[in-house]
Write a protein that binds this DNA or RNA. Sequence first.
DNA 1: TCTGGGGTCCTTTTGCCC
DNA 2: TCTGGGGCAAAAGGACCC
Length: 441
Amino acid sequence: MSRRQFAAPTRSGDDIPDDTGCTILHVDMDAFYASASLIERPDLHGRPVIIGGGGNRSVVLSATYEARRFGVTSAMPMARARRLCPQAVVLEPDFPRYSQISDAIMATFHSVTDIVEPLSLDEAFLDVGGALRRLGPPTGIAQHLRDTIADEQSITCSVGVAPTKFVAKLASSLAKPDGMIVVPQAEMLGFLHQLPVGALWGVGDRTEEALVRLGLRTVADIAHTPVETLRRALGQASGSHLHDLAWGRDERTVVRQQREKSIGADETFAHDIDDPVAIHRELLRLSDRTAARVRAAGMMGRTVSIKVRFADFTTITRARTLRDPTDVSQEIYATARSLFDALGLQRARIRLVGVRMEGLVESEGAPIQGLLDEPDHGWREADRAVDQASARFGAGAVRPASLVHEVRNGGAGRNQRAERGPQGSRGPGPRAGRPPASGPA
DNA sequence: TCTGGGGTCCTTTTGCCC
DNA sequence: TCTGGGGCAAAAGGACCC
């Protein structure tokens, strides 16, 4: 194995890091989507590869380190990435595959400790405090995880080992790729204070600008600034939080997976559109998709919110809280559409629309209210039939009539992403068991 | 250069009730 | 009857993360 170990800092005089009290691990896969895609394409190893959608408005999801050497970074527009690295091979993302690999990696984490907090498909915090007697010191556990994941998944990862979540996360990012950094308690401040402010978790472009305006460029600068000054510049919560982090104070514990607080879907059009009928159709599709995911999670939501992004990238949101929580596609769509219509837009050019359910509660025990226009065999039963058909024939096997019409006619200029994949791949069928007129009338 | 899609959290504003 | 203020929840916007 060529994986780097114990990259920094170490106890003086030997190569064994002092990991006393470093019970928090942050494990982060290296270029996860790209690495996962290359498992099926070993011929591309060592070459610049970019994972991203084919649409004219897509961005880079992930890139191999060979591509990153040309300046390609994630979230960069694909058009720019292709210009920077024209020889790169571009692959479409394969989310079901990434999910599978992620499940296997999370299972490896759980073989070490049951206190695992996933942050996304490819990274997690682990609290190994309870596993020390059984498995040895934290660095040994971290190395075991790195070896196991490399052997079983052929993907390398980087690990930060520290007394707090925040420092563990910083350490793993500095260890990339394929490395491990241990930050003992005694060396934490020295480690932190040399870093630029942008390294702090929660400091993005805007906050960094605000800090630089105050003349603060390093974490040490923040640490030595009165907390009141930070609060005035960044707000109460952010100011105090950053000051604490700069002194290594981070009381947050590793918490097991939590339930989502919101579920939603949005979509950027391939070209800006101003046709209200096309926008209603998109709201119907997104409401349908969101509702199906809410039901699949065994949840119901009380607040429906929509997002509209205009051609100039300004974005607005509108929300309405219902009397009772719902998971009914039709009710979510009706609310989303009424929120949109209330904007009173006069053919404004729109780039993106989204639908989101908030205020989620477990559907078990949630009050279920009949809808005003509910027929004998209601929307709820119809949704259940749609879910069953989707489970059997694939998502999108059953869809509202207005969307069937749209598929036959080749769509309304949406980004490519939604035109492919499981949706629509089995051909549009009639919406079985669905009450009539579910589309935008 | 021209900006995805999935989320979370924080701040400010607004409206309602007492 | 009108007004003001506190408390609260919802709405809206924005920053941030992967």
